[in-house]
């Protein structure tokens, strides 16, 4: 019996858009038969990570909401883990309705930042925390309370 899931994927922000679409399409194909109809895709865009993941300071966040058979998640997680451009993946079962507006936290890629010439106080976000290589192995499916 299908259940509803929510998956957050963090891709490498240096990926080209066409490559990202291609990779996303492949992952979506593992989850549902018709991604256009049965899946809601929310793009948060490129954000600064709270700490570097594999020396990457930024990541592209994509949120997928869908109904699928639990068996299909196994193949999806295998594909996502094999892809080195997927920095993180988290799947949650029976997600709550989300009203988060991510636009405020979106950052532009560093290449487009122009030198600041105004005298206004800078409102740059703080530098991310530097963490050790110890990362939790929290990639499994979790039950939403």
């Amino acid at each position: 019996m299908p259940r509803s899931y929510e998956t957050v994927l963090i891709f490498d922000s240096t990926l080209e858009e066409s490559v990202l679409e291609q990779k996303l399409g492949r992952l979506q194909g593992a989850l549902v038969d018709d991604a256009d109809e049965s899946m809601t895709v929310t793009q948060w865009g490129t954000r600064k990570l709270a700490y570097p993941i594999g020396k990457k300071e930024q990541g592209t966040y994509i949120i997928l909401r869908y109904d699928t058979e639990p068996d299909r998640l196994v193949e999806f997680e295998r594909l996502a883990k094999l892809d080195e451009q997927v920095l993180r993946q988290l799947t949650v079962v029976d997600p709550i309705e989300s009203t988060i507006e991510p636009a405020a936290a979106t950052v532009e890629p560093a290449a487009t930042v122009e030198p600041v010439t105004t005298t206004e106080p800078a409102t740059t976000p703080s530098e991310p925390a530097v963490t050790s290589a110890k990362e939790p192995a929290e990639t499994g499916v979790e039950e939403e309370k």
Binding site: A50, Y51, I53, G59, L87, V92, P128, A129
Partner: peptide, 25 residues
Amino acid sequence: QRQLATAIKRGRFLALIPYLPDHAL
């Protein structure tokens, strides 16, 4: 509180919030 603890741990894993402050390491 139990739900919040789970949410914070998920937020940390997704690099939305830090595990440690900037100056810790």
